[in-house]
Design a protein around this nucleic acid. Structure first.
Length: 117
DNA sequence: GTGCTGACTGCAG
DNA sequence: ACTGCAGCCAGCA
């Protein structure tokens, strides 16, 4: 059996989705925080890339993932540029000028909340 | 098979 | 304070 029975392409993307799904309502996190939690802090770009593929997954709240500045950098990848802000508003996260209000207060760090690192 | 792009981040100038 | 460059890895022409 040379080929793997389980066609799991990459655990990286899967792990990213698992972490994003763990983000509680009313909280947000950053690509770097997820990347660091996975042990690949330098691969923060891959986290954003995984979010692009996350559109196929219904349980992945990609709107809760923003960059380290709290800016909705990926809002243009949603159905509409305002979709991301609306979803965050439904979660109780205020967004003004494409930036999360009180970002540091609603920031959810998996490394801390999950007691890692 | 080769090369470029990209929902980021950290460091240097 | 802002700007520019390099690193990381997967997908696509």
């Amino acid at each position: 059996m040379q080929k793997t029975p389980i066609t799991k392409h990459s655990t990286f993307f899967n792990d990213v989705y698992e972490v994003v799904k763990l983000i509680p309502k009313g909280r947000v996190t950053s690509y770097g925080a997820i990347a660091k939690y996975l042990g690949t802090a330098k691969s923060s770009r891959m986290v954003g890339y995984a979010m692009n593929a996350a559109h196929a997954l219904p349980d992945v709240p990609a709107q809760r993932v923003v960059n380290r500045n709290g800016i909705l950098t990926g809002k243009f990848h949603f159905e509409t540029p305002t979709r991301m802000q609306e979803l965050l508003a439904q979660d109780g996260v205020a967004v003004i000028n494409d930036e999360v209000v009180k970002f540091k207060e609603v920031f959810w760090d998996p490394c801390i909340e999950l007691h890692i690192g």
